[in-house]
Amino acid sequence: MKRTISYCLVYLATSVLLAGCNLIVFNPKGQVARDERDLIILATGLMLLVVIPVIVMMFVFAYRYRATNKKAKYSPRWASSHKIEAVVWGVPFLIICVLGWVTWETTHSLDPYRPLDSDTPPLNVQVVATDWKWLFIYPDLGIASVNELALPVNTPVSFTVTSDAAMTSFFIPALGGQIYAMAGMQTKLHLIANETGQFRGIAANYNGHGFSDMHFSTLSLTGADYEAWVNKVKSAPQKLDHASYAQLAKPSVAHRITYYSAVQERLFLDIVDKYEGMNKAPRAKDTQVQRNSDDTRADQQPSLLAEER
């Protein structure tokens, strides 16, 4: 009896503690995150159609056919029931069919490489994961920031993600989506923030002792506030070139937020090219050699040439 009371108290305390948790995945702030939340709820609900009846029947059968129940029907010659077979096989079959259709539809609609449907042009952001900080380059604005990402609300954002260190994962739970950052590769992610606020971004893949401090602030701002943020970054004294980036890329833990008012051209592509090997972009002075090089790179890595142009 005492043990039962203790278990009940533990379960009650756990429930109270969990009630204070902020389940950010179920409190989305963007359309992609909202669609992913609905998918999780739908898939879980469909699976519970089987799980809950099985759990209930387990207790019912255990109670009804206990050894002390002499009134329970005993049928030693019972072999099969077409009705039971239809339910046992039919219900899971229907659930699998529905889940398969849902998976097909959402795999395409929630593809991280798929641009979001919007009348507003997307904001391009290049993301570089280093040990242990996040660098955000705004190629259209010529600015960059470290451990702080600012986005205009209701504007689709096209992320191009790479790594200059160990592989990790770029994840903003409130906005949905998660994509790996790998050295020498570019991955794509499209998100949108439909509410203003400050959201936490994290590295969702363990990559060393600074992993727990490798997070950043995502600011979803109104148009005026976003312009003010851009102007603040443009007034920063620091500029990001290969020399300053080399210092920035050195391992550091809990790096402070840093702004760069100018970014050297091709810096992001040069970071990718460090690990490209045969695809490394040459620095030829001769125009014909450069043209031949571009043709070769177009065959080997079309996305790089398109990004460069």
Rank of each mutant, 00 (worst) to 15 (best):
R3F: 11
S6R: 14
S6D: 07
S6L: 15
C8E: 14
L12E: 03
L12M: 14
T14G: 15
S15G: 15
V16C: 10
L23V: 12
R34W: 12
L39F: 11
L39D: 00
I41Q: 05
I41P: 02
T44R: 14
T44C: 10
M47G: 07
L48Q: 08
L49I: 13
V50C: 09
V51Q: 13
V54N: 07
V56E: 00
M57C: 08
F61N: 09
A62E: 09
Y63G: 14
T68H: 06
T68M: 09
K70S: 12
A72V: 10
P76S: 05
R77L: 10
H82P: 01
K83T: 14
A86D: 00
V87Y: 07
V88G: 02
P92F: 03
F93W: 10
I95Q: 06
V98I: 15
T103P: 00
S109Q: 14
D111S: 08
P112G: 05
P115K: 09
D117K: 15
D117E: 06
D117C: 01
S118I: 10
P121N: 07
P121S: 06
V125M: 08
Q126W: 04
W132G: 09
W132V: 00
L135A: 07
D140N: 10
G142H: 05
I143L: 06
A144C: 10
S145P: 02
L151S: 04
L151P: 01
P156I: 04
V157M: 11
F159R: 05
A166F: 04
L175N: 04
L175H: 01
Q178N: 15
G184C: 10
G184M: 09
M185Q: 15
Q186F: 00
T187K: 11
T187M: 09
I192K: 12
I192A: 12
T196G: 06
G197A: 11
Q198R: 15
G201N: 07
I202W: 01
A203Y: 02
N205G: 03
F211I: 03
S217G: 03
S220E: 00
S220L: 02
A224P: 01
D225L: 05
Y226V: 07
V230G: 00
K234P: 01
A236M: 01
A236C: 07
Q238Y: 01
K239T: 10
L240S: 02
L240C: 01
D241Y: 07
S244D: 02
V253R: 05
Y259P: 00
Y259A: 08
Y260I: 08
A262R: 08
E265P: 01
F268E: 00
D270E: 13
D270A: 06
I271N: 03
E276A: 15
E276L: 13
P282D: 05
D294Q: 09
T296I: 12
R297Q: 06
D299C: 01
Q301V: 05
S303R: 14
L304T: 10
L304F: 04
A306V: 13
